[in-house]
Amino acid sequence: MDILQIIIFTIIKILIIVTIILLSVSYLVYFERKISAWAQNRIGPNRVGWAGALQPFADVLKLLLKEDIVPEVANKPIHTLAPVIALFVAFTTYAVIPFGPNINIFGFSVPLVVADVNIGILYILALTSLGVYAITLAGWSSGSKYSLLGGIRSSAQMISYEISMGFSVGGVLLLAQSLRPVDIVQAQSGWMWNAILQPIGFITFLVSAFAETNRLPFDLPEAEPELVGGFHTEYSSMKFAAFFLAEYANMFIASALIVTLYLGGWQFPYLDHFGLSAGWFAAISVAAFAVKVAALLFFFIWVRWSIPRFRYDQLMSLGWKVMFPLSLINIVWVAVLIMVFKI
């Protein structure tokens, strides 16, 4: 494969993925509304299209037509930049997440990942940390006390939880002996899923992911009762939509990352023993990945409509006094796995 072909394939993959993310994110909003309705014995959106299937488009249209209001005292360039950063971070993270095995198209072996980078995990951690900037800058540039408090909360929260997140990932890296997402997926063949091997790490990572994506029960940066809307109090129209989109895209990324790191990625256990053709193998793998991600997304939404928000001090003490030690214990446990059980 020469460089031109690589570029063409990469661009095609990027286009496919961006389309998929955008579509699934909008339907994620739809399902969030549906699931919340079901949990509350309601029906949910059902007016636009069949069973409300066109609701996401109606929502987007509505947001597009809204007036874009920027506060008088806002720092306008940064106020505009913040939602762009949020979206940028959300989309670029997806570049390194593998969503299927290598496939053969027109005689080329194409890996089903946009960029098969050998430091992919570092890349993801780096980019998700960048996401804090979006929220902090949004909060600061709005020139509103609520926004500022939301931004400050979010930076404190994200920094705290990034530590336990990083340590949890450490366990995965130790087992896979690689920073490459594709390698990590391959290391979990069969039932050797990291979620089973290191359950503590899985839980700490899962909880940290909730905190990193600002989802309930950790959505303190936008806690409505106290902060009106937190960092996006002063946002409206498409800028608000960008934050909204980024939040759900982040959820999507977080789910995909959890699947990659802990739930065997695109692998269907023992699929290679069934003797399927390469095409079927690839299709089932991609489907397995999609199902796993969908299940996690459902879990994200389900948790949101079940568990109330933490108090801020509870959030911090959970992060530092519970999650951080637990992730350290997980590292020790992984070490034991490697040294004693020789995995």
Binding site: A39, N41, I43, W302, V303, W305, S306
Partner: peptide, 13 residues
């Protein structure tokens, strides 16, 4: 808590 909400998802609306 999660099981409570899950149960409710299948109750009549």
């Amino acid at each position: 808590g999660l099981s409570l909400t899950l149960k409710n998802m299948f109750k009549p609306k």
